[in-house]
Every structure is written in structure tokens, then in C-alpha cells.
Amino acid sequence: MFDSLSNKLGSVFQKLSNRGRLTDKDIDEALKEVRVALLEADVNFKVAREFVAKVKERCMGSEVLQGLNPGQQVVKIVNEELTEVLDAGDHQLHHGTQSPAVLMLVGLQGSGKTTTAAKLALHLDRGPGQKTLMVAADLRRPAAIDQLQALGAQLDLPVYSEDPASTTVLNVTKNGIKEAAKQGCPWVIIDTGGRLQIDDELMAELTDLKKAINPQETILVVDAMTGQDAVNAAGEFNKRVGLTGLILSKLDGDARGGAALSITSVTGVPIKFMGVGEKSDALEPFYPDRLASRI
């Protein structure tokens, strides 16, 4: 994860750490390299510029330049500012007073949304009588219904579906929520169909669905490897639908890190989970400080 970016930053900080004393010029040169590394990692240029400016402002103080181990001080400042870039809003899921709590998953086609729905349902599983029900609300892609049913059978999780030829997205969703209540499920996850953020008709369908069911959480699943495309999609989905959180899928295959480092700063929407592998349990809660340390 983020190997390319980590290696480049590691090389910059190794040079600084090897110097006993640091000058303004040393800091300037190092931060130019940091900025280039961030841009090459497909980090949003405004995010990269503001990040470097904040680090520079904190590093130019005499306490850093003339203190013991100034190189380590710079690394510490960079780590703190990285955490700040990744951190915004509330990274927790909140059940609220409504039961079952409704969680609507939205996203582009191919973002890994259906697989993520199953991973998230497994993460929320609290044992017998406390399972999360998944609703197959992607009626345009019959294979999505089959996929969700197969994942449910594999993980022993309940799935609600209807014949796409004789139902609507709203009907299957409302009936699925009723079924979850009947089974005593604390959570119900609505797996909506993938759509492009520029498709007005499908985005309007999503907006109408949200108004009708009033979900506790509306979470966008984005493919971390698509970089700034993921950031742009998140911005548009948030503007049109209103998001409470993000899940970055396929983060384990992302050597650069542009989406992860830009998406919250640009959209203001917090990352809630990270997909870090293909296995059903490869979904981790998001902790900004831990990800900054990895980088």
C-alpha cells in the first residue's frame, strides 16, 4: 500500500536525518521533493500545495532547525500534517435510534460495491439473531443480485431480493427494510446499482430513494486506484445525494495514494473503512493516524 510514495518520502527524510544541522535551504529543497512526490502520487495539486506550505511554516522555526535531531522533528511534523489531511468529520458508523438502521451503499460501476456490501455486513455481524441483512437493489444488473446472494450464502448472511422484472428499486428496498425489522436485524445494507455521477436520470433515482427511506448512513464506495477520478466522483455524489462517509476499496493495490490523501480534503466527507484485500474480512476501520504512519 502506497509503496511508491512511501519510498520517495523515505528517501527525502533519510537525507535530512543524515545531517546534523538543517538550514532553511535544506528544508526548502526537501519540501520541493515532497511536493513532487505527492503530485506524482496523483494527490490533488491544491492539497499538495497547502500541505507543503503548512509543513514549511512549522519547520522554519528556530526550535526545529537548531534543536536536537532536526531531521526527526521534520518527520514528526510531516506525520502530524498527513494525519490532519486524512482526518475530517466522524469516522465511525452510527446506528441511531431507528432499528434496523439503514445503510445505503452507492458508487460507480466496478468500484467493488457489492463485494464491499458483504464485507461490511460481515464486519457488523453480531452473531445469531444480530445479523445484518443485505438488500439486492441493483435491478439493472441481474448478475449483481446473483453475486449478493452467493456472498450471503458463503458468509451465512441474510439477503433480500425480488424478481427485477416485477419490482422497482423503491419497492425492493422498502420490502427489504421490513424483512430486516421482522428478522430483528440491527442493520440493513442497501446495495444500490452502480452509476456515473454525470447520469442525471440515475442520480435523480438515487436522490429520490434516499428521500423515501431516510438512511442513517449514505456511504460511497470508490476504487482507490482511480486516483483523482475517485475524488471527482465523490465530490459530485456528495453534492447530488449527500454522503455521510466513504469506503476506499482496493487500497491494498494502490501504490500511489492520491485518492486517499485528497478525497477528504477536497470533499469534506470522512473515510469510514478501507478495503485491503479480496478476502471477506479484508475491510478495516479507518484511522487517519495509522494510515499516516504507514505512509
Rank of each mutant, 00 (worst) to 15 (best):
residue 165 A to W: 10
residue 137 A to Q: 02
residue 146 D to F: 02
residue 111 S to Q: 09
residue 151 L to A: 12
residue 200 D to N: 14
residue 186 P to W: 08
residue 147 Q to M: 03
residue 131 K to W: 10
residue 164 P to G: 07
residue 146 D to W: 01
residue 142 P to I: 07
residue 192 T to N: 01
residue 139 L to D: 01
residue 157 L to P: 04
residue 139 L to I: 05
residue 183 Q to T: 12
residue 181 A to V: 07
residue 190 I to K: 00
residue 201 E to C: 05
residue 200 D to L: 12
residue 175 N to E: 14
residue 183 Q to F: 11
residue 138 D to V: 02
residue 194 G to T: 03
residue 142 P to S: 05
residue 101 A to D: 11
residue 157 L to F: 07
residue 172 V to T: 13
residue 155 L to S: 04
residue 125 D to R: 10
residue 187 W to C: 09
residue 106 V to E: 06
residue 129 G to T: 12
residue 202 L to M: 15
residue 100 P to F: 04
residue 179 E to L: 10
residue 151 L to C: 04
residue 194 G to C: 06
residue 184 G to H: 12
residue 100 P to G: 08
residue 151 L to D: 01
residue 165 A to T: 13
residue 150 A to V: 15
residue 151 L to G: 02
residue 131 K to Y: 12
residue 124 L to A: 10
residue 136 A to S: 06
residue 127 G to Q: 07
residue 175 N to C: 08
residue 193 G to F: 00
residue 195 R to C: 01
residue 137 A to S: 09
residue 175 N to T: 10
residue 160 Y to D: 03
residue 156 D to E: 15
residue 177 I to P: 05
residue 163 D to G: 05
residue 134 M to P: 07
residue 98 Q to H: 13
residue 173 T to H: 04
residue 188 V to Q: 06
residue 104 M to K: 11
residue 161 S to D: 06
residue 136 A to E: 03
residue 180 A to N: 09
residue 101 A to H: 11
residue 104 M to R: 10
residue 128 P to T: 10
residue 152 G to K: 01
residue 189 I to K: 05
residue 131 K to D: 10
residue 118 A to K: 00
residue 160 Y to L: 02
residue 201 E to H: 13
residue 104 M to S: 12
residue 201 E to A: 15
residue 197 Q to V: 12
residue 109 Q to M: 07
residue 104 M to N: 12
residue 130 Q to A: 15
residue 150 A to D: 13
residue 109 Q to A: 07
residue 183 Q to M: 15
residue 117 A to N: 03
residue 189 I to Q: 02
residue 157 L to W: 04
residue 174 K to T: 09
residue 197 Q to L: 10
residue 172 V to C: 05
residue 170 L to C: 08
residue 186 P to T: 10
residue 105 L to R: 07
residue 167 T to F: 05
residue 116 T to D: 04
residue 99 S to V: 13
residue 120 L to Q: 06
residue 125 D to H: 15
residue 112 G to E: 01
residue 193 G to L: 00
residue 181 A to Q: 14
residue 155 L to V: 04
residue 99 S to C: 11
residue 143 A to E: 11
residue 171 N to W: 04
residue 142 P to K: 06
residue 173 T to R: 03
residue 109 Q to L: 09
residue 166 S to R: 14
residue 134 M to S: 07
residue 115 T to R: 01
residue 113 K to N: 01
residue 118 A to F: 02
residue 163 D to P: 04
residue 135 V to A: 03
residue 117 A to I: 01
residue 124 L to C: 08
residue 201 E to S: 14
residue 111 S to R: 09
residue 162 E to G: 03
residue 182 K to Y: 12
residue 186 P to Q: 09
residue 119 K to D: 05
residue 145 I to C: 00
residue 181 A to Y: 05
residue 182 K to P: 08
residue 194 G to V: 02
residue 178 K to N: 14
residue 181 A to C: 09
residue 169 V to T: 15
residue 147 Q to L: 03
residue 151 L to P: 00
